[in-house]
Design a protein around this nucleic acid. Structure first.
Lengths: 184, 184
DNA sequence: CGGCTCGGTTAACGATGGTTAACCGACGGG
DNA sequence: CCCGTCGGTTAACCATCGTTAACCGAGCCG
């Protein structure tokens, strides 16, 4: 992927996160990268395609990261799988808040095919988490475990809404809270 | 407030929560209540005014409910203030998910004055929570306590994103997780 | 040198949005 | 009975949006 495409996707994600997909015009995106309006069509098929690339990219990075952590034979790394997932997701949310926000709230604006791809990755990501949670909470049904995982996402993804403490303090706080919420 | 106004606000909140403020047209709102388009201007000053009333109403109900629970001399009710706030917020989120979603993500679409009013109530609501949390976590700074409260909101407000378990089971799960996240 | 591709530009188009205007039936009170 | 208000309607306005068209300079390759 060319650097220009990456730049467009990054700034578009920021704009979508701040004002919502329908609250951002292609002119806004172009202006934010220093070009104007229709020039975006040299890089993407359209506005919805830009959102789709953002979401595909984000959901893929999350899923691949989670799978890398919990791959069979990954027992050599320290700590249990759940703690690693919590740390991984926290770091992602702290370093890419816009992607987190957009992936959480704008997937409904996609066309059918792109939405299906994103949803598939998101569900697979939830599944990795749910499997990691099961050993700690054997009394939970599968549906309850999924609900608990999504509640934990809500907690970890709240990072864009605050930000008044240092990043390391926030990381520590979120990890501690998520672990307590999930395994207690 | 006339029943028609309330009906418009309720269905508008649902639409805003589902597709975002800019993703809903006044025609959509009108059609959802059985009238069409410009008839809404007999009840509200404009589209932004509808959103403003939704948010004012929601933030006021949250703040008043929280203040009623933690009013001085309210020591007669059972349990500590924090647990009561958690239960109150959980019930609100479960019964009015659209208001929760809209209040969380669409306040940026308001004009300056309405946004200021909503933000004021939201900050006051956070403040009530933070004061209730302090006794349980005296080691946290004020900023850390606020961040923890907002993370707990993220957890409790995640209820619209899932929903595959019964409401009572969800209520129990959320309350348990929030309490664990906050006081552990 | 000549031409092709790449990544821009501005102009224009059609659709849609929010808002206003003009009109109108129901209905309740003097 | 008449009239004003209430809550609707449809038509029209203007701005904005996403998208396409037409054009153009820079650079590279043959």
């Amino acid at each position: 992927m060319t650097p220009r495409r990456r730049q467009i996707l990054d700034t578009a994600a920021d704009l979508f996160a701040a004002r919502g997909f329908h609250g951002v015009s292609v002119g806004d995106i172009g202006a934010a990268v220093g070009i104007s309006g229709p020039a975006l069509y040299k890089h993407f098929a359209g506005k919805e395609d830009i959102l789709g690339q953002c979401l595909l990219h984000a959901s893929e990075r999350l899923l691949e990261g989670a799978r890398a952590l919990t791959a069979d034979g990954g027992e050599t790394v320290p700590g249990d799988a759940l703690s690693q997932l919590i740390a991984f997701h926290t770091d992602f949310a702290l370093s890419q808040p816009s992607l987190i926000v957009v992936q959480e709230r704008e997937w409904g604006a996609l066309g059918e095919q792109a939405r299906a791809q994103v949803r598939e990755r998101q569900l697979a990501y939830i599944d990795v988490w749910t499997r990691a949670l099961r050993p700690h909470r054997p009394e939970l049904s599968a549906a309850q475990a999924r609900a608990a995982v999504q509640a934990a996402f809500g907690l970890l993804n709240s990072t864009p809404h605050s930000a008044r403490i240092s990043r390391t303090a926030m990381r520590d706080l979120l990890i501690r809270m998520a672990r307590a919420a999930l395994v207690t």
